[in-house]
Structure formats: C-alpha cells, structure tokens
C-alpha cells in the first residue's frame, strides 16, 4: 500500500473514530459515579486501522481521536480515563493480533475489556479505594458485548470494505 493511501485511510479511520466517540458521548454510563467511562464503540475504527493498516497507524488514529474528542466535546477528566483505557486496550489488541489465536472478534473483545480495566484501574488510583471495583463486573459485561458486536461488524464489513479500499497487501498477523 502506498504511503499516500495509508495516510488517507488513517484520516478516514480517525474521522470515523471521532464520529463514533460522539456517539459514545451521547450514551453516558450513569451507574458508575465517575465521569469519562464510555462504552468503547469507537474501538471499531481503531481496530479497522489496526487490521487494514497496522499497529503504528492504529496508534495514530487512537491518539488523534483522543485529542480531537477532548477539544470538540469532552472534558479533561474524561480525557484521562479515555487515554488510560485506550492505551491499555491498544497494547492488548496489538499483542493479541500478533498471536493469531483469535480473529477480529476475539481481538475486539479483549480490547474492549481492557479498555474498561484501564479506566477502572485509573479510577481506583485516584479515588484511593477499592470500592470502585464494585462496578467492574457490569463494565466487563458491557465490554464483552460491545467488543463482540464491534468484532462481528469488522468481520463482516471487512470483505466489502476491502474491495472498496482496493487495498492489496493488507497486513495480517504482524
């Protein structure tokens, strides 16, 4: 894939990530008394970048999405939780993808769950108490479900999308 195409697709996925972030923003998680906990729907775009382009581009999309989201419609505290979740999630997804034990679905699910783990871990540091982990089972459940959905979407969309992007030499297992 040419660099120009890579850059262009990175831009596309970033835009998609920001749009999905807005959707996340509209769905506040009310049962957890900490701001910034989000559902992880935008993970879809980051995953797409990971599978179509590669880990470096996925990291770029993730970073850009975090910064743009912060300035457009989020607040600083939510930003910190998102950063923590996104970093952990991305690291885990890159590793899992490398092992090739799982498909996009498994990768997505791991990413979503570790996104939540990252957020809760940060919250327990700030709140200086283990009480916040009370909300973890519910978040884990939500993460597993959204991760599965995201993975399925990517799995079934990747065929047609691949044709649209006319990407040859899509990296897998790297």
């Amino acid at each position: 894939m040419s660099t120009t195409k890579k850059i262009a697709l990175t831009g596309v996925f970033t835009a998609l990530a920001v749009a999905l972030s807005y959707v996340e923003f509209l769905v506040p998680i009310t049962f957890v008394p900490v701001p910034g906990f989000k559902l992880g729907i935008a993970n879809l775009a980051i995953m797409a970048a990971l599978f179509f382009l590669g880990p470096f581009e996925a990291a770029a999309v993730s970073a850009l999405r975090l910064v743009l989201t912060l300035f457009l419609f989020s607040n600083v505290n939510a930003f910190f939780y998102s950063v923590c979740g996104a970093l952990l999630s991305l690291a885990v997804m890159i590793i899992i993808k490398k092992t090739t034990f799982f498909s996009e679905i498994g990768t997505s699910v791991s990413g979503a769950v570790f996104h939540n783990i990252g957020q809760i871990a940060l919250a327990s540091l700030i709140l200086k108490g283990s009480g916040i982990w009370y909300y973890f089972p519910a978040l884990m459940l939500a993460g597993t479900l959204t991760g599965t959905v995201n993975g399925l979407i990517l799995r079934f969309a990747s065929g047609p999308l691949g044709k649209i992007f006319k990407t040859s030499g899509v990296q897998t297992g790297q």
């Binding site: 880990p55 990291a59 505290n77 910190f80 950063v83 923590c84 970093l87 690291a91 890159i94 940060l122």
Partner: peptide, 28 residues
C-alpha cells in the same frame, strides 16, 4: 517501528498516571 510504538505507549501511560495525580480533588 513496533519497538518505538511500545516505548511511546509506556511513556504515555506513565505520563498519564502522574498527570492524573493532579486532577481536581485527586486526594482523600
């Protein structure tokens, strides 16, 4: 590239956790 990505990720995580120590009322 992969090596530098990991470094960036680790550095960022460290930066984030130390920064959040100063976020509003991050105390007991």
């Amino acid at each position: 590239r992969r090596g530098s990505i990991k470094k960036i990720i680790i550095a960022a995580l460290l930066a984030v956790t130390s920064l959040t120590a100063f976020s509003s009322c991050g105390q007991k």
